[in-house]
């Protein structure tokens, strides 16, 4: 028996090692969301990110001048917009007061820099230099001055990993700013699309897309992009709408984490409601 095992091992050891390692990998695949794995992940990327942050700072210095010029231009544009918006805000405040709506525009912003990027065609992630000590929690939106960039996925004390919109695992409910119609947006590996959009929806090329209030991840409207192409599926009742995102993930370096996670109270009440049905 021992001789048989020994000769089998000698003949097929490469294949045995391969099979064993693949089985271990498959076992780990099913454990992705377990608490233990999340803890190991937080320690691993937290330690590595502390080194990466020093390295990325060196590269960021060379980009600062260019970024500064861009910021000054953006600042001037925003200043012009602001004066127009002030006028609108006065009217808006009056109307809100009349309707007794809560002021829901004050969300805390946590300034962060991207210290490393894992740019793959399907699983884009970025590591940020802010973590739980700055108040960052999983599920918080990551934004730039142009719009939403991603969602916080994992957090350590001083660093966090965010899934970008170029990640097949991130689905968001979005809506058209003009028509107010909602749909689910996802990354299809080569483009960002709104899926299962009924053909009766009145979306047009150039329409602005923002995150929807009904989203369980980002329940406030944040700009996402514009409609670039409306698919014309001949069979069926649904269309696919391609979105051109406002944020260029290849170039983005500095971001904000929106200090907002959906209210636990809302989650609980919705969960209880569904349970009772």
């Amino acid at each position: 028996m021992i001789r048989f095992i020994s000769s089998t091992w000698e003949k097929f050891k490469e294949y045995i090692v391969l099979v064993v390692l693949i089985i271990i990998s498959l076992a780990l695949l099913s454990q992705n969301n377990s608490q233990g794995i999340q803890k190991v992940r937080a320690v691993a990327f937290g330690s590595f990110a502390s080194v990466t942050s020093v390295f990325s700072d060196i590269f960021n210095i060379s980009n600062l001048k260019k970024e500064n010029e861009e910021l000054r231009r953006t600042n001037a544009e925003i200043m012009l917009q602001l004066s127009r918006l002030r006028e609108s805000a006065i009217v808006n405040d009056d109307l809100k007061g009349l309707l007794a709506l809560k002021d829901s525009t004050k969300y805390p912003l946590i300034i962060a820099s991207i210290i490393s990027k894992s740019l793959s065609k399907s699983q884009g992630t970025v590591t940020l230099n802010v973590g739980s000590s700055s108040g960052v929690k999983p599920g918080m939106p990551v934004i730039t001055d142009k719009g939403i960039a991603g969602i916080i996925f994992s957090v350590s004390a001083n660093y966090s990993i965010a899934r970008t919109l170029n990640n097949v695992d991130l689905n968001l409910t979005v809506k058209c700013e003009r028509t107010r119609e909602n749909a689910v947006m996802k990354w299809k590996g080569d483009r960002l699309v709104m899926i299962n959009v009924p053909k009766t929806f009145g979306l047009k090329k150039g329409d602005r897309i923002v995150t929807s209030e009904i989203s369980s991840i980002v329940p406030v409207p944040i700009p996402v992009g514009i409609v670039a192409e409306i698919g014309n599926v001949e069979m069926g009742i649904f269309n696919e709408v391609t979105i051109q995102p406002f944020v260029d993930f290849q170039k983005v370096e500095n971001v904000f984490v929106l200090g907002l996670v959906k209210s636990k109270e809302i989650d609980d009440i919705e969960f209880n409601f569904l349970n009772k049905r």
Binding site: L21, S25, L26, L28, Q31, F45, F48, Q123, R163, D169
Partner: peptide, 28 residues
């Protein structure tokens, strides 16, 4: 094969990729 497995594990755990996906890919 073993080095591919280790590299894949470290890559997945550090970059936040789906744990196990790069492990299998790099092992093979």
């Amino acid at each position: 094969t073993v080095l591919g497995f280790i590299y894949g594990f470290l890559f997945d755990i550090i970059t936040g990729s789906l744990l196990g996906s790069t492990m299998i890919a790099k092992t093979i």
